[in-house]
Amino acid sequence: MHELSIAHQLVELAVENADRMGLRRVTALHVRVGALSGVVQEALRFAYDIAAAGTAVEGARLIIEDVPVVIYCPACRAERSLPAPVPARCPVCGTPSGDVRAGRELELYALEGEADEEGNR
């Protein structure tokens, strides 16, 4: 369970960026979580509420976007999105591939909030 430590870093990153972007009040955090990121969504949600308490992003919604694993299939010569991380095989032709192109993300993608009207961008 390292989600609490990750949640703290997420909150810290959000607070820093909200400040930098001139957001007065943060209403939502958009986070992209890859299927191979090692993060369990439920655990992250639970930990986020704890980590956000008492900070500038307290009360902001956590909106999580799932990022599926994408492998490069050498037979199809194309990137293929997998329905699940295992098996790591092309869903079209069945060729195994360890060439992972996406799915390891753990990213603060965007912040939603309110800014002063003349707030700088």
């Binding site: 990750i6 870093q9 997420l10 990153l13 959000a14 960026n17 972007m21 957001l23 007065r24 009040r25 209403t27 986070v31 993300e105 753990l106 990213e107 603060l108 993608y109 965007a110 912040l111 939603e112 909030g113 309110e114 800014a115 002063d116 009207e117 707030g119 961008r121």
Partner: peptide
């Protein structure tokens, strides 16, 4: 002062540090 809603793109790795 009026506040306006806004979405800003961040795109930073959570484990950046």
């Amino acid at each position: 002062m009026t506040m306006t809603p806004r979405i800003v793109e961040i795109r930073q790795n959570v484990l950046k540090k």
